[in-house]
Design a protein around this nucleic acid. Sequence first.
DNA 1: TATTGTTATACTCTATAACTATA
DNA 2: TATAGTTATAGAGTATAACAATA
Lengths: 150, 150
Amino acid sequence: MGVAQDRKTAHRLTGTLGGILGFHVRLAHGAVNRHFAENFSGLGLTQKQVSALWLVDEFPGIAQTDLGGRLQMDRATTMTIASRLEEYGLLRRERSSDDRRKLSLFLTEEGVAALKRGKDAIGEHEKWLKSRLKPGEFEKLVEMLARIHE
Amino acid sequence: MGVAQDRKTAHRLTGTLGGILGFHVRLAHGAVNRHFAENFSGLGLTQKQVSALWLVDEFPGIAQTDLGGRLQMDRATTMTIASRLEEYGLLRRERSSDDRRKLSLFLTEEGVAALKRGKDAIGEHEKWLKSRLKPGEFEKLVEMLARIHE
DNA sequence: TATTGTTATACTCTATAACTATA
DNA sequence: TATAGTTATAGAGTATAACAATA
């Protein structure tokens, strides 16, 4: 309640939005999404969808719940993404024999082809990202962002 | 089409999702949103909404289109956010006398109070972010992310 | 009891297209 | 003609709650 607290509050209230990390995370995310959507609309897939295909390819037979864990989404959200990819004919669901509650996910042939195109798109997109950074910063940035979401 | 190209493609296709910067930007954005939503639900405002209030406070009388520019959203999206804040009674719109096509935005008294609470929440939230980084990284991260979205 | 998947539902953010009014 | 705002509409992503099947 004293002068020190007043000063602290005053300082915080007069700060500029440009100094807020969360604000820059939000804008960067938007810029990344926009660049991908605008430049690779022919792909017919979002970055998120390519990520899901990528993980199913990296971990064949992964359970839906584990896919959700790796992409940090709850069961219902995972359901939305997986169902859409199944509708597109890119993903196949199979009841697990180990634990019959679980679904094992696999890519279809079309899914493998779509992932290949998706990875090419993401490769180009990553080049664009890299071009906006100084040498060595790319890896630094990955490391710091990972520490935030891990 | 030669061996060099094959090798390059093979390398790209066998890479792991964890090395993709866009992937980490997405996860970090999700983590930031989730932390804010879970810890400051009592505020009744999203980070995005607080950002909008903050900018109107920083630039009193800012036109809707300029607010949109600073938050990198198109006219329609800006409309959605501004209308909601007006509904909440936090924002006031006034026809500009300079250019009668434009709207000037101002905070209401309630808006000023809400922004104060919002800034306190964001201040705590930023502390959480900082705690996940090493000394000096916070500023580095802001700088790099800014270079991506600028 | 706990976990996995499922469905219904709702909310935020985003964008396109077509329209009105002002410049 | 171009710009600012507006409305209608749609889609992606996210989440909560309640339910069924399985462990």
